[in-house]
Amino acid sequence: MARAVSNKTKTINTVIAGTLGVLMFFPILWIIILSFKTEEDAVRAPLEVLFQSGWTTDNFSTVQARSDYFRHFSNSVIISLGSTLLGLVVAIPAAWSMAFVPARRTKDVLMWMLSTKMMPPVGVLVPIYLIFRDTGLLDSRVGLTVVLMLINLPIIIWMLYTYFREIPGEILEAARMDGAGLKEEILYVLTPMAVPGIASTILLNIILAWNEAFWTLNLTAANAAPLTAFIASYSSPEGLFYAKLSAASIMAIAPILIMGWFSQKQLVRGLTFGAVK
């Protein structure tokens, strides 16, 4: 039973929580504002920036001209989409079989897969770097796609597994009784029921791959550099650059910020491996 809450209490709660929300969001809000200012205005006192300066959209084209945003953007898209889809191809069959044909060792296999995610990347940085250097994969989109697929594979399998396990097995048995083969079973019965779970998995993994900043920084130079590296190139300032840095930052995070808003629930499930629902 929900209790009736007076509007006064609700207003007080809203003010307190709203203040906190604005404080947390402020850095993002601030770069949105600065990205529409000229460089001279962007370094003025905050109140002057807000009330005594004009607006401009020049920064976005400057950033594109200075550091080729679109090439980095397309690298990010290719790498994050590619690694997610590649991961799905490997993970869907694995998660399907563990959820519906559990064997004695299924739990051990799942836990072992999870344990590979616990390995810190620096533990394998040197060999991966050397292998990539010797095979020409350094600074290639293919190499990065494969690495990101592998580091996110345990999360993809786990997420799919927790979703698949919620699909009642009886429906699959009924389909089998009606003469559906394995192919029909997966294609016509399982897939439609699993689509929401698969969609959530795709969403979360694109976010994780998009923001991954260890391998993307260490394994790329110019050709395959995604947006994480594009932003890192702004770490050595050249004159006034706040407005350009803000515009570049907004361009790098906007797609994921929007996707992230739709994926709050999936985030909890995916990153806690089903331990909190």
């Binding site: 947390m24 993002i28 994921i256």
Partner: peptide, 22 residues
């Protein structure tokens, strides 16, 4: 809630540079 959660979706290089400079 969205405002509170948003920072999690900001890539590490962006948040580090924004805090460092702005």
């Amino acid at each position: 809630r969205i405002m509170v959660i948003a920072p999690f979706f900001v890539m590490p290089t962006v948040s580090a540079l924004v805090w460092k400079n702005m």
